[in-house]
Write a protein that binds this DNA or RNA. Structure first.
Length: 308
DNA sequence: AATCTCCTCAACCGCCGCACG
DNA sequence: ACGTGCGGCGGTTGAGGAGAT
């Protein structure tokens, strides 16, 4: 009596999702929220495995996802974090809230790994991808422990902030439950985002080529929507600064509260009680050296808790 | 213009950990 | 304490696109 398969292998559709399927899934999640994936195929009539539904949502349809065109800072963060954490893509993705673990994994495998290999050949990088000039006294084990502490503290701070007994200004952005393990309260921000996706998909159905083109150009139609503006404003209110330029904006967007909160079970964020720790300071060192992201780094330093 | 090769990335597979009864 | 089921994660695959010949 082995484990029941997650889905019947017979009659389950595989392969690329169609816009129609996306709409069905998005509509369902808009109404019920993400979670209880096992019920999704039966409730929606989708001939898809529950895992496939979850994956499609988390990697593609979820609001706040940024696609394509990794910025230089994102690349550096990925390289640093990969060196630090290894192939723990979900953990790495927790520091790039707008990127999915799948995206980061793909980007690493297709771009960064090769590039680092080349650089290693030139002697610019050490074996594990960390710049050779950076000799860190702190062991990887210590970093990992501290990272876990960071995440734990962020989770605790967030759950404190969001608990109904302790209303807080930082709870301005209601989380939606990415894990589906608890009941779902539909926040307005999330709902409007999902509406946007539904609109997007409707547009896609009407004019698939045009939509495909725009996505290929790296333009995220969702960003064009007013919800995106709301997100930005939210980011600014949380971060307490206005992005100076596109690179700053990139980072602030990567710290989007919606995206962060959507995975708040595992993602640290820049909430009032959530500190950017030495890790983040370290990650942004190079950007700071390039004269970028001063404000974000300052924030990191201000909020920093000294663990050592 | 046709064919081949390489690259990208969405999606699948299987394992693992956790929650729950 | 144990078994079961679900969700999550990382590795891998393969279809389709882009570029080279």
């Amino acid at each position: 009596m082995g484990r029941q398969p997650c889905c019947d292998k017979v009659g389950v559709k595989k392969g690329p999702w169609t816009p129609e399927e996306d709409i069905i899934l998005v509509s369902y999640i808009q109404e019920h929220g993400p979670g209880n994936w096992r019920a999704v195929p039966t409730k929606t009539g989708l001939l898809r495995c529950s895992k496939s539904c979850r994956l499609r949502w988390t990697n593609y349809l979820r609001p706040g996802i940024k696609r394509g065109n990794f910025t230089e800072n994102e690349e550096k963060m990925i390289i640093h974090l990969q060196a630090l954490l290894g192939n723990r893509w979900a953990a790495i993705a927790s520091y790039l809230p707008q990127r999915t673990d799948n995206d980061i994994k793909n980007y690493w495998n297709t771009h960064l790994k090769k590039r680092l290999k080349k650089l290693q050949g030139n002697g610019s990088y050490s074996r594990d991808g960390v710049s050779a000039k950076s000799t860190y006294q702190i062991s990887r084990g210590q970093w990992e422990r501290k990272l876990q502490t960071d995440i734990h503290m962020a989770k605790k701070a967030l759950s404190d902030a969001l608990s109904p007994e302790k209303p807080s200004g930082s709870a301005e952005f209601e989380p939606f439950n990415g894990t589906g393990s608890t009941s779902y309260a539909k926040p307005s921000g999330y709902a409007s985002s999902t509406e946007n996706i539904a609109k997007l998909l409707k547009g896609w159905m009407r004019n698939p080529l045009k939509m495909a083109d725009s996505s290929e150009e790296g333009t995220d139609p969702i960003k064009e929507d007013k919800n995106s503006k709301e997100m930005d404003e939210g980011v600014q209110s949380v971060l307490g600064f206005e992005p100076l330029d596109s690179s700053i904006s990139d980072i602030s967007q990567s710290m989007s509260p919606e995206a962060s909160l959507s995975q708040y079970e595992s993602k640290p964020n820049l909430n009032a009680q959530t500190q950017l720790s030495l890790l983040e300071e370290w990650l942004f060192d190079e950007a700071v050296n390039q004269g970028k992201d001063y404000q974000l780094c300052d924030l990191a330093l201000d909020e920093n808790v000294n663990f050592f």
